[in-house]
Design a protein around this nucleic acid. Structure first.
Lengths: 146, 146
DNA sequence: CCTCTACCTGCAACTGGTTGCAATTACATT
DNA sequence: AATGTAATTGCAACCAGTTGCAGGTAGAGG
């Protein structure tokens, strides 16, 4: 739990209580790489403490999302995925709507878009983790020749 | 139905059958302005033909989405909204995660982003109708002084 | 250490959306 | 106009996610 101290402080300062359930959910997300569904997190926490409820998982993810400690993304697979936001290592996804291939998109493109929007409208977008749907090069080719 | 002829032809050429249910769903979307939830479309169709099933509405919205005749957008209100895509009149939304205010975003910003991505990666994004979450100017101010 | 209260939890009921299946229907072919 | 078949429909059962509520707990203050 040692490396969690900072996060715990951030949450407490925002007026949130640190319950054992929350600490377990937090820990599951922080020590994992990549995206997880709510159910995956639920299962992992339940292995340690079998009485958690799935609604507690969703509610905790909700407060973490509101504080922008985790990102919530619809990857087009049916259920929503959550990921711990690391300042370095920001990334986005290009998802082909035909073949479902997922490619990465450099953060810079969206960083620039966010800066433009902020400068011109005053609105500050959360550019944490985007999923952009479209057609990959291969599928464009295929539909041209079909 | 006269003004629908072109759309009907597009669908038939893609191998889809034109059932009365689909024609009613199509007509409801085409003659409406703005975003609608699946339930709103369902209710409207049901007024004319009470035996449609909600799953038929979702499935039809699915094929229309796949053909990019309608856009599907999560506006953060819980349920997904659908809108007939009109080439002119493209627009996007900036939604404040604190006060839920919705502002419009000019299509140009995203058009440019889409062109950049296509040029550099070959992936062609569907830039039909984005909802970008963040903090409006007022709420940024409020959280600074809080 | 005890008290108090606002926040949090688990439960159960609910809403939005999806899926497998048997029966039906659009429409291409003859 | 009759036939064949693949797509589509309605139904029912299901999965993902949300919400109201009564009881429980973190943690601030005394």
């Amino acid at each position: 739990m040692s490396c969690e101290t900072e996060t715990v402080e951030v949450l407490r300062e925002a007026g949130h209580k640190l319950t054992p359930q929350r600490l377990m959910i937090l820990s599951a997300l922080r020590h994992a790489e990549g995206h997880y569904t709510a159910t995956e997190i639920y299962d992992q926490v339940r292995a340690e403490y079998p009485y958690v409820d799935i609604s507690t998982v969703y509610r905790t993810l909700g407060v973490l999302k509101e504080m922008r400690l985790v990102s919530e993304t619809n990857m087009g697979t049916g259920d929503t995925t959550y990921e711990w936001v690391r300042e370095h290592r920001r990334h986005h996804h290009l998802i082909c709507r035909d073949c479902d291939t997922v490619a990465s998109l450099d953060h810079q493109y969206l960083e620039d878009l966010g800066a433009e929007i902020l400068a011109e409208s005053g609105f500050k977008p959360d550019i944490d983790h985007f999923a952009i749907f479209g057609l990959c090069a291969t599928c464009q080719e295929r539909s041209r020749t079909a």
